[in-house]
Amino acid sequence: MKILINFFEKVGYSITSRINRLGMATRLFFLIIISSGESFRRFHLTMKEIYFTGVMSLVIIIVSAFFVGMVLGLQGYYTLQKYGSSEAIGVLVALALVRELGPVVTALLFAGRAGTAITAEIGLMKATEQLSAMEMMAVNPVGRIIAPRFWAGVIAMPILASIFSMVGILGGYVVAVIVIGVDEGAFWSQMQANVDFRYDIVNGVIKSLVFGVACTIIALFEGFDAPPTAEGVSRATTRTVVTSSLVILGLDFILTSFMLGG
């Protein structure tokens, strides 16, 4: 009996604490929105963060995109070839990247590369009382530190996702056309005939925007919420990756079902 009660207590506690954290993250989100003026009035603050989140993630995004594209080209070719429609490889690579892999893999890599960096940075600033010191200098840390990072993430993510898709398609092109020898004209024309700007490309960009908001908020919140100890910051960093990944995949399903349904 006691074990049962303990079990329910644990379940209840983990649910309420999660809901509590969700509420606090939402509150942080609104705080960021209302104190965002400075991020745009003094755009160089945001610019600096775009450099750290976007430009610094460029290499990992380009390299992974190229490999993902090449693998898609190879795998797609061997499957499509069985049905005698290897020219459709262009469509397969492009749709897979533009609709799904571009936004999703970019967001996952972003969470690992930039998200963890944000969490660790904010967590350490908190642990070393830098945020407190800023408050005492009558500077709102949400406006000065948090908001520019948020907007930088939201701006950088769609750009990174577009780069990912484009580089991935080039990777697929290299394998399919240059290595395997699929007809170049068929590769591009099939792609163009079947990829719709509004329904495929724009939807992909919308997805990456949503992921950008989610990833950055999670990273910022975990950093802001981390206990000010070495252990607390390291745990928060781990949680950033885990939570971001789950949220990205869950949101992806929801968004996709909306987009295909509507």
Binding site: M47, I50, V98, A156, L160, S162, I163, M166, V195, I201
Partner: peptide, 22 residues
């Protein structure tokens, strides 16, 4: 660097729109 980054992004998006999405 940020300028280059945004430019690459815009070029990619344009590439997707023109070359891929026609």
């Amino acid at each position: 660097w940020v300028g280059i980054f945004v430019a690459i992004g815009v070029i990619s998006l344009l590439g997707l729109a023109m070359k891929v999405g026609n």
